[in-house]
Structure formats: C-alpha cells, structure tokens
Design a protein around this nucleic acid. Sequence first.
DNA 1: CTTCGATACTTCACTGACGAACTATCCTCT
DNA 2: AGAGGATAGTTCGTCAGTGAAGTATCGAAG
Lengths: 175, 175
Amino acid sequence: MKRMPECLAHMDAGIARVSESLPDAPLQEIVLTRLLLLVGGHLLNELELNLKPFGLNDSDFRTLMMIYTSPSGSATPSELCEYAQQGATNMTRIANVLVKAGLVTRASSAEDRRKVVLSITTAGKRLVRKILPPLFPQVHAAFASLSASDKRTLDRLLRQVAVNIDLLTHPDPRP
Amino acid sequence: MKRMPECLAHMDAGIARVSESLPDAPLQEIVLTRLLLLVGGHLLNELELNLKPFGLNDSDFRTLMMIYTSPSGSATPSELCEYAQQGATNMTRIANVLVKAGLVTRASSAEDRRKVVLSITTAGKRLVRKILPPLFPQVHAAFASLSASDKRTLDRLLRQVAVNIDLLTHPDPRP
DNA sequence: CTTCGATACTTCACTGACGAACTATCCTCT
DNA sequence: AGAGGATAGTTCGTCAGTGAAGTATCGAAG
C-alpha cells in the first residue's frame, strides 16, 4: 500500500483526467467527496483496529457509548436506530453482541411490551472507561497538525456538508 | 431516522457527557472524528444508491474509474490495490464483477506472466460517461453551501488529516 | 541450472450489514 | 369491543469485504 501523499497525488491526477472526456465535471467537489470517503474510511479502520481486542466493532461501540451517555443508562433499540444511522436488523445483532458480552442487559419494557430496554451494566461502564483513554492520544494525533482555529473551521464545514447531504437525501423541507 | 440537525445535537450532547466520567477526553477531536465518520458514511450511502442501478458499488466503480483514467486504459490488480485501499482478495472479486459486466477485459501479461492486465472496454468507457454526469448535480449540492474559499480550506484540512492518520497507522518516517 | 524467497493472483471460510418478510403489541376510530 | 393500521423487534437469506492458505511465476544467489 502506497503512502498517503502519493495516494493523494494519484487521486488528483485521475480526477483531473476525467475533465478531458467530461469537461463540465465539478472537479473541486469530486476531490472533496473522495477525500471525505478516504479519510472516513481510514479513520474507521484505525478505530476498529483499536476495538478489535475487545471483540467490538465501531457499530457495537457506538451503540454502547450511546447507552453509556444516556442519562438513564438505558435505551431502546429504536431510539438507538434513530440516531446511529443503522437499521433495526443490525441493531438486533448489536444488542445480541453486547448482551452476550455482558455489557448491557435486555429486558422488555413495562409500559410498552413491544419495546426492549437495553441497560448498561457495571461491566459495560468499566469497559468504556477502559477502552476510551488509550484512544485519546490517537484521536488527538489525527488532528495534531491543525491549529485550534483550523479545528473549529473543520467542525463548521463538516456540519454544513452533513446538512447538505441530508437535504439531498431527504428533500421535502415541508414540516 | 432523525434529520441531521437533531442527530448532530444528540451526538454533541453524548460526547459532552463523556467528559463527566473522563475529564481529560479531547472533546473537540472526538467530535471531529465522529463528524468525519458520519459524513463519510452518508456520502458513501448516497453514492452507492446512485450506482446500484448499474450493478456496481463504490469499490467496483472506483476501480473502473482508475482503469478509465489510466493513460493506457489498463492496469494490473496489484497496481489498483496500491492506490485503492483494498486487499488483493477483494480486487479479484471486483475484477470478476467488471469482467462479467463486460466493462473490462482480463488478460495475462506478456512480460510477467504472474500479472493480470485489466483493460477497459468500449462498453466500460461508455458506462463511465453515462454514470458520471447525473452525479454532478448531487456532488455539487453536497458542497453548495460552502464558499469557494471554504472548499479550498476543507480540501487543505482534509489532506492534513489524511496524512496525520497515515503517519499514525504506519509510523516509521524512515525511508 | 537449481534452489529459495518474493511477488501476483486466486480460493475458501468467515464476519458485518442490509432488505424483505414475520410476529407481537399498541393506538385510533367507529 | 374490535378492526385496521402503525410501531417494535426478530429471523432469514444475501452480498461485500477480510485473513489465511494455496498456486504460479519471477528473480537473485550459489
């Protein structure tokens, strides 16, 4: 696998060559799209590499974190789906994983018996507090070359892009 | 699935709450990481939604584009792996897909008979020129709310992050 | 020339994620 | 009350992607 600078140069060259056959291609935006996909993918690889020793992948971990940070320490699968960009099918699998690992408990709700309540266990909280700290240096390093103002700008721009894509996917600005 | 603004707010709140149990968490960087994963994921979903009608996913398409933009109109699987962030195993599958669809041909190299040469066909070129243009408005819309200078800044920052992650993953700045 | 290590690709078995179909429960309207 | 529709979760079949192991070819060293 080539190092990043060469990889980026190759990408730039390839995209630039597209405009030979399709002159009206929005080159800048295509490059940004590819960069986002590239960075997102590498970030995910790196994160999952750190989670693998604990038998979790990013979906599992994100779900665990959402239950962990929930004020009540519990949540239902459908609530989690709402915010975790995941289908109900996969949430069932994730719940199975977390329950089997003893990190959360699964109980059916009292008020609405269709619902399932996932609650974090002591072991779950302990695992979160064990996994996170070793991640901090790496997360920090990923943005180490950015100034404080760069980071604020990146934050702002990414949120804008997130909203743009959301509008693109689900049009209807009709409440 | 919730709309993006609520989703972002929920994410912010969750991450903020992490610092209650782990006060030295680099909140800003964690948010940026999550934003990148989120945007990358949504961008990928949206792109693959557009490619599905043609029986391709992003890996297939990216590979096809790399062959398309190659000056010779052909490449070997190992070359493609170098730049496409993919394992050789998956490249074999991709080549199978593209060959079966008649978009590229597979031939063994004359100079080095270990190598396989994938060459784009007329149908492959035609498909690229058919798929791309309808994508342009969407790609453009994803960044529509960003000014020209915002886009340049985003490009610059993403490249920095890409390099940082690469250094993190493959240390050794020893040539 | 042969042997050995490296390279190129393929095959196989497995995991993660998704859509479609199913079951159970709840809510509303009559 | 009870019929119809919406919601919550699960199950099942399928596909994309990966690591480990296998085959074929190349190149260098003896």
